[in-house]
Amino acid sequence: MRSQVRWKLCWENELQLSDHIELAEFFRRTYGPTGAFNAKPFQGSRSWAGARPEFRAIAYDSSGVAAHMGLLRRFIKIDGSDLLVAELGLYAIRPDLEGLGLSSSFRVVLPVLQELGVPFGFGTVRPALHNLVARFGRGGLVIVKSGIRVRSTLQEALLDKPPTRIDDAFVLVVPVGRPISDWPEGEMIDRNGPEL
């Protein structure tokens, strides 16, 4: 599968309007089947849902966008301790390519994480994606942690909702510049911003 896709690794400001339009359509088609609400943020040419990524890994094949992962450096708090991470999110694989091994080719972001000098990559996945998370954890590249609550701000301040939400999610940790033993133990992670 990896030989059939080509990866574009780019900073957010390198994307053209046509890239955003193509990505927005890709996310609507990919996230839409999981619920109309999941596709809602990607209206028009908007190619991000919460926080906007600073870097993207985009896979293309003969049918267009095949897969995507966004990256954003930020400080999170784990039980009050600050930690610099590269948050990984906006993860998607086109439905016709799921189960064909494309997810393992996301290793293309490792050199970028190393170049950025972050100690860890960090991401969250909702429990419904347990099987996907289990596959990531098998190779040892990603450490999967459960039993951790993650607080995020909402993308917009709404009058009828609290400004933050708390999720019970699987936490994915990628040791980059430090060993996994340096990851702080804790039961609550504060994103201090919207999820990627």
Score class of each variant (00 low, 15 high):
residue 68 H to I: 03
residue 194 P to L: 11
residue 123 G to V: 02
residue 45 S to M: 04
residue 69 M to S: 04
residue 24 A to G: 08
residue 19 D to Y: 04
residue 135 R to Y: 01
residue 70 G to T: 05
residue 43 Q to F: 09
residue 131 N to M: 06
residue 125 V to L: 04
residue 171 V to N: 10
residue 118 V to I: 08
residue 168 D to T: 14
residue 106 F to W: 12
residue 171 V to F: 10
residue 150 V to Q: 07
residue 80 G to V: 14
residue 153 T to E: 11
residue 113 L to Y: 00
residue 117 G to R: 13
residue 103 S to P: 00
residue 45 S to F: 09
residue 186 G to R: 05
residue 15 L to K: 07
residue 177 G to R: 04
residue 61 D to Q: 04
residue 57 A to Y: 03
residue 109 V to S: 02
residue 15 L to M: 11
residue 149 R to M: 13
residue 29 R to N: 06
residue 126 R to S: 12
residue 160 D to V: 02
residue 167 D to M: 01
residue 34 T to I: 07
residue 182 D to F: 01
residue 38 N to R: 15
residue 110 L to K: 10
residue 180 I to L: 13
residue 40 K to Q: 13
residue 61 D to N: 14
residue 154 L to T: 09
residue 145 K to I: 01
residue 120 F to M: 10
residue 31 Y to V: 01
residue 81 S to H: 13
residue 147 G to V: 05
residue 176 V to A: 03
residue 141 L to A: 08
residue 106 F to G: 10
residue 103 S to L: 10
residue 156 E to N: 09
residue 97 L to C: 04
residue 75 F to D: 07
residue 156 E to C: 05
residue 148 I to H: 00
residue 156 E to A: 04
residue 193 G to W: 05
residue 91 Y to K: 09
residue 17 L to V: 07
residue 139 G to S: 14
residue 124 T to V: 13
residue 32 G to M: 10
residue 150 V to K: 02
residue 99 G to E: 11
residue 126 R to V: 15
residue 112 V to M: 11
residue 131 N to V: 14
residue 17 L to E: 13
residue 116 L to F: 12
